[in-house]
């Protein structure tokens, strides 16, 4: 009994520790000049064209990154999982590059490598989807592999081909729907990473392309009220992403059970 209470106290302390900054943030963002709470900082933010511009830029970048990642990661991971375990190990190993090469180092590398010749991309936003895809790669690959491990992809693929489907047709008609929940989950992770990325965006574009995190930094420096309102909105976006991912994860579990039965 005594033991149980210690655990409860620890959990409550943990909750306090992690929630205090966020309660403080929300409280700060709704405190006006007077004593009554107000949503004016949110209103100001919504009508600010700089904010909506950065939001649109971020959403566009994130969407490009998701499409790019699904396009270049899904087919090779699927193929290697089914037919080439050795290649899969190589893919898994290189997908961990972002853990050894952090964003700052990547930015430094890009600034030097993409600064001349044909690939003179520093100062433009064109590098960003590739950089974000690289940062999200370990997560996307693991989510997709998890999905593959829960299905019998190989025998389904062979069955389709023995019934006369071509490899490409079987991949499009059977494998892609099978992998859909993995692609959605991984895509959501990539989306969240892209929406929140600051380091590479700031260091390679030199601030020429305004995204949500970049504008958050500027807004907070100029006007802490507006900046904190924006931080609240960004957090809400992130929580929505995680809730959506959880929703799809539970959907996945149900469907896997159905397949096994």
């Amino acid at each position: 009994m005594f033991e149980k209470w210690i655990y409860r106290i620890v959990i409550v302390l943990f909750l306090t520790q992690v929630l205090v900054p966020f309660v403080g943030l929300v409280q700060f963002s709704i405190q006006g000049a007077g004593t009554t709470p107000t949503l004016s900082s949110f209103q100001q933010l919504i009508v600010n064209p700089l904010f909506s511009g950065s939001l649109l830029n971020s959403l566009f970048l994130a969407l490009c990154t998701v499409i790019l990642s699904i396009g270049i990661f899904t087919p090779p991971v699927w193929h290697a999982y089914l037919y080439a375990p050795k290649v899969l190990r190589v893919i898994e190993a290189v997908s961990f590059v972002p853990f050894v090469v952090p964003a700052v180092v990547l930015a430094l590398a890009y600034v030097q490598f993409f600064s001349s010749g044909l690939l003179n991309l520093v100062g433009t936003p064109y590098l960003l989807p590739f950089a974000f895809a690289l940062l999200g790669m370990p997560f996307y690959v693991q989510v997709l592999l998890n999905r593959l491990r829960h299905t019998d992809a190989l025998s389904l693929h062979e069955a389709a081909q023995s019934l006369g489907a071509t490899g490409v047709y079987a991949f499009m008609k059977i494998q892609l729907p099978l992998l859909r929940s993995g692609m959605i989950n991984g895509g959501l992770l990539i989306f969240t990473i892209s929406i929140g990325e600051f380091t590479i965006t700031q260091l390679t574009t030199g601030g020429s392309y305004n995204t949500l995190p970049l504008y958050l930094m500027i807004a907070f420096t100029n006007n802490p009220l507006e900046g904190s309102a924006m931080a609240v909105l960004t957090l809400v976006l992130a929580v929505m992403g995680v809730v959506a991912a959880l929703f799809f994860a539970s959907d996945k579990r149900r469907r896997v059970k159905g397949e096994r039965a």
């Binding site: 205090v20 309660v23 943030l25 900046g227 609240v232």
Partner: peptide
């Protein structure tokens, strides 16, 4: 708590920094 930890562990960065700065700031909650 694991769902919350998932959000917090992955959502470091700017919003967290802003949250701390205003909470421990001059007229912050703490």
């Amino acid at each position: 708590i694991s769902a919350m930890s998932g959000v917090l562990a992955n959502f470091a960065g700017l919003p967290l920094a802003v949250a701390f700065m205003v909470t421990f700031g001059v007229s912050g909650l703490v």
